[in-house]
Structures are given as structure tokens and as C-alpha cells.
Amino acid sequence: MPLDPKFIGRTYPPTAPYEVGREKIREFADAIGDANPAYRDPEAARKLGHPDVIAPVTFPIVVSMTAAEQIVMDPELGLDYSRVVHADQRFAYARPVRAGDRLVAVVTVENIKSMAGNDIITTRADIATEDGEHVVTAHSTLAARGTAAEGEA
């Protein structure tokens, strides 16, 4: 069954705050093998004008993917997660994520379509501090292979 387009525009409740720690940033930077001192050394980060260590460019995926589970796992939507592949990803920053941030994500279904028998769903996660300062918006497109087949002629 193709996904129901009535979900387009649906926004889910804000996530519980994710507290960004220096050691989590270091772990993520180590995992991607990125030695940039701005991720590890508060003094080096301050020299660049940041109040504390900052997180790598793709780090917000840790927050946005967890938040997007509300959509992906929504039984009413009925996405077959076992067939889902990540089709594209975009980040737009107001500022970098940094240690000490308490981040809240609000996810929205931006679009749903069927293409060549695949369900394609585009989600947006607006990530802000607990105080409402916008930090980054993450757009993710997920494709569920073959799940829209019944909708195709």
C-alpha cells in the first residue's frame, strides 16, 4: 500500500531535550576520524570564536534521526522500516551545535510520493535549544523499496 498523502504537513510533538556533551562530540569525531581541534579542545574552539567545543557538521543526525522515529515508527502511517533506505540529506545551520546545548527537535512530514513502486517520504527536523534558539534544520528523504507497488498500474 502506498503511504497516505494526508500525512503531508503533519508535525509531531517536540522531543525531550538532548544534552550535547563534550565527550559525545569527541566520540563522534573519533568515529568519523576527524582530528579537527574545534571538536576536542575548548581553547582551540574559543580561538575560532565559539564558547565551547563544536560538533562535526553531520552530528545533528544523532538528534534528527531519533526525532524522526516518531514518523518512521508511527503505526498509523505504516512505513515498512525494514525496507527503508536513506535517499538524501541536507543540513542548514543557524550556528554550529556545541557542547552544553540542550536541543529539542520538532519533526514534520514535508512530502510523500510514490516513484517506481517506492514510497518516498521527506521529513524535516527543526532543531532548536530548549530556550527556542534555532540551531539547525535537517531535511531527510527516506525511500521504502517496493512498498508502493500496489499503487502502481
Binding site: I32, G33, D34, N36, A38, Y39, L48, G49, H50, I54, P56, V57, T58, I61, V85, H86, A87, D88, Q89, R90, F91, A92, Y93, R95, P96, H139
Partner: peptide, 28 residues
Amino acid sequence: MYTMAEAVRVVTDWVEDPAAVVEYSVKF
């Protein structure tokens, strides 16, 4: 996302401050 993280290092190593990246997008 691992490949996406590696690829942008060409940019962040060039500018040194990773915060210089204000938008980044890829298709897989």
C-alpha cells in the same frame, strides 16, 4: 551518513573552522 561525514572534511579542513559550513546536502 558516514560517507557524508567523510566527504565534508575536504571543506572543513580547507577552512579550518567547521562552523563555516552553513549548508550541506547530498543524495545517496
